[in-house]
Design a protein around this nucleic acid. Structure first.
Ligand code: NAD
Ligand code: NAD
Lengths: 208, 208
DNA sequence: TTGCATTTGTGCAATTCAGCACAACACGCA
DNA sequence: TGCGTGTTGTGCTGAATTGCACAAATGCAA
């Protein structure tokens, strides 16, 4: 299945939201749903959902809607999350430790497989179950040997770009950056950002 | 200064990004910048930045660019972050505790002023400096008395909607939701979501 | 079988969004 | 002063995105 780049990124961005909503519907005992039901839950128009899905094939049945388990499977295929991904985490401070302990990543197919820090005090320490903090100096080799393509950055803003450069040089092609700074990366490398303050600042605009 | 709703939300969403980049430029010792420099850092076209800013007035000077401190001030005014906001946090489990300890919110003007949980074991416990976990039953009164307009939700997905409803009934008008579920809220209430797995799933689409 | 109530997938139109390109302005320097 | 370089703010154009509306398909009930 080779969906080239003729599919808008904004559509790709909505697929995980659909998938998450389908998970929940299934948990609640539903077996089928419709674009209307989904749209109502998500605050998205039904036409938008149908059009988004139609980029990848006809997953629904007219008059009936979508069988949830089937649609979930298809979306997982499209997003390539019907497998386990190994993820590296750089920066094991307060945030990094919290991330390492959080089960929500592994539960949804992202296995944090190695931790790196540059603080000699921390290297060698155990975190959670079976994870040991490794030196940032060993990072390139570990990344390459295990062919890791995804990393999370949880270091200080001042070091985030430097860490990103090292990760990319080692072969990482997708980065989730928690540091409050924009990264410059070469073509072909994907970056996503998490900064809760940005979300708050966006909402205060509308308050009173 | 009354910017009505004729300004696209997508523009509002970029302003905090600009503001964050300006902070950093200032930290690095710059005093002026240009739409080109900003755009290069952020991967956004310079025309876009100029047009976004021009919605709120002419903050730059032709031939020179933007004076950083002045533009920061103006953006803070527009976003209404030139003041301190009080924020309530509901759900003081692993994530909630991490949030309560994180200084990044207060540093940028969002003061977490009260914590709520429904676990009797947790109510009364101290978290961080000066914060005590209160019962969810007291939440409406505390929210109303302190006129709190912003809340973060860090409870289990199963209880997030219920908590949101209670918050909104108490007067909250902006919610940052960490639970992996979409919330249904009435007109006029703003919700933003944080789910790192969504970001990862968006990137795996493009891997190999 | 027929009719009715649903719901999908999609062509097309409308709207929103992004970027080009340039006049107007600013500054430094000769 | 006059000239060259640099940058903003914006009208206009094209691209991207969304939403409408309907034919085609499905299932059910009479
Ligand atoms: N997005 C969020 O939700 C969120 C929440 C909390 C913190 N943050 C951000 O995450 C970052 C980390 O926050 P924190 O509170 O954990 O800080 P911290 O200081 O506790 O942890 C940073 C860790 O990174 C390590 N580090 C620094 N430079 C490094 C390098 N070059 N290579 C490897 N390791 C390096 C340090 O040794 C330390 O262990 C900060 O940028 C902070 O602003 C984001
Ligand atoms: N977005 C993220 O980055 C991120 C990270 C970690 C966890 N999470 C999510 O955040 C949520 C909390 O995660 P956690 O690991 O802290 O879980 P947790 O079980 O440790 O904490 C949940 C807390 O919420 C409290 N709670 C439950 N129902 C409540 C109610 N009705 N009113 C008040 N308090 C209530 C519980 O007593 C508990 O203290 C989960 O939905 C999880 O998926 C999100």
């Amino acid at each position: 299945m080779a969906f080239n780049s003729n599919i808008p990124d904004i559509v790709i961005g909505r697929l995980p939201i659909y998938l998450r909503a389908l998970n929940r519907l299934a948990q609640e005992g539903h077996e089928v749903t419709s674009s209307h039901e989904l749209g109502k839950r998500l605050g998205i128009s039904s036409a938008q959902i149908r059009k988004d899905l139609s980029h990848f094939g006809g997953f629904g049945k007219q008059g009936t809607g979508y069988q949830i388990s089937y649609l979930e499977e298809k979306l997982r295929q499209v997003l390539q999350v019907n497998r386990e991904w190994e993820v590296a985490l750089v920066g094991v401070g307060d945030l990094g430790t919290a991330i390492a302990h959080y089960r929500g990543f592994a539960d949804r197919g992202f296995h944090i497989c190695c931790l790196f820090d540059n603080d000699p005090q921390k290297v060698g320490k155990k975190v959670g179950e079976g994870l040991v903090i490794q030196s940032i100096d060993d990072m390139p080799n570990v990344i390459k040997k295990n062919n890791i393509q995804i990393a999370m950055i949880a270091v200080n803003a001042e070091h985030a770009q430097e860490v990103a450069d090292q990760l990319i040089a080692a072969g990482v092609r997708a980065i989730l950056n928690y540091a409050p700074i924009n990264l410059n990366v070469p073509e072909g490398v994907h970056v996503q950002y998490i900064d809760p303050v940005l979300h708050l600042q966006r909402m205060t605009f509308y308050l009173k």
